[in-house]
Design a protein around this nucleic acid. Sequence first.
DNA 1: GGTGTATGTTGACGATGACAACATCTTAGC
DNA 2: GCTAAGATGTTGTCATCGTCAACATACACC
Lengths: 218, 218
Amino acid sequence: MAEGEQGSAGAEDAGERRLYHHSNLRATLIQAGLAILTEEGVQALTLRAAARRAGVSHNAPYRHFADKEALLAAIAEEGFLELAARIEAARAAAPASPRAQLEESGWAYVQFALAHPDHLRVMFGSPISDPQAHPGLLAAGARAFNSLVEIIQAGQHAGEIISGDARQLAFAAWGMVHGLALLLTNQQVPANLRAAYGQEQLVRTCLRQQIWGFVPRS
Amino acid sequence: MAEGEQGSAGAEDAGERRLYHHSNLRATLIQAGLAILTEEGVQALTLRAAARRAGVSHNAPYRHFADKEALLAAIAEEGFLELAARIEAARAAAPASPRAQLEESGWAYVQFALAHPDHLRVMFGSPISDPQAHPGLLAAGARAFNSLVEIIQAGQHAGEIISGDARQLAFAAWGMVHGLALLLTNQQVPANLRAAYGQEQLVRTCLRQQIWGFVPRS
DNA sequence: GGTGTATGTTGACGATGACAACATCTTAGC
DNA sequence: GCTAAGATGTTGTCATCGTCAACATACACC
């Protein structure tokens, strides 16, 4: 955003000038949506609220998104991209052992969920009517998933992980991590469990148990 | 709107007479909400729509629910009760082996999710602001969770399941099943995986892998 | 039988998603 | 350069929703 062309006066705050046709409203609206998610929660994420944050009229978003669901899909896509980046970073930072990488990736996933619970709700809780209508969303989700597949394949090559369909194993791992993340963010963890372990230890314990199931028996 | 007391006459369909003060509107509204969930989906679940189905005015629900969230909580509670019942039934129908019971319980959970995806969304997707305000909800959730704990404890006694905190193990199992259920109902399963295995086989394979991690090493 | 309270109704308000009509900026063709 | 056409943003409007306030009715207890 930011520039001024054309016309005229009305320099807003100075520096923050936008030209009406303010170039990428689309990106601005997505950022506004993310800000609303973290500051006010998912129930406050409304087309009109995003428009207000972007400083445009209540109907401007319709020039960039067919309807509310399209904005949600774009925000979800953004989430999957960050999720994939976090998983990849965690893998890179982890020891070379595929099993360790699996644990760190899972923990990274849960950390993302805990840091952005309402973003996660948009990514997964929403009933996206036609996924085919939002191809970017599918691609971003696939990228995150493929990170797991790669780790598992590497582990199979190294003999650290049982043989079998790597995609199926990755799905199992994804399911576990996803379930843990949602239970934690929804505060649906039995209270005494949470108290006894603490979030990180509880999650890592569950992850190690699952990964333990991936270890070849001698 | 509809009838007539007081004045009188107006027997509706015959048989279906309700006396205005029609006794348990509360239960009727919950049932109406469930019907909306299965027939129209979660986005159609609205206080006013539930009132319409129940044949009362748009404000009648407020005599029984403080706000929309209270109705959602009641519907969620209903879901947890059915979920617990299904898990218990699956356990009862399964072989005596605790590991088999674990798999059947998990599959029952996923079946419930597939049969009532929008009900699941109300149970888990909603951001219940203050769980303490809906004690029945917590109790119903705890009952479902405790079914798993019991199976695991039995397995530990029989030496079929590794020792350790049964509640933590149950949480891991719950997380896995929950994640699988959500991914399936949100249609977020990689297409080729779904095609290669079919839902039931895919789920059972993942469950067995996890349970395999619960088996004591010789 | 009369009265108080629980239950249901009518009416209103502000907010939202969506549509239509209009205004303004940008760009393409000349 | 200038103008016509399209892209982008605005104003106005509508039906629906959640919620509140005021009012009406029916049941239960004395």
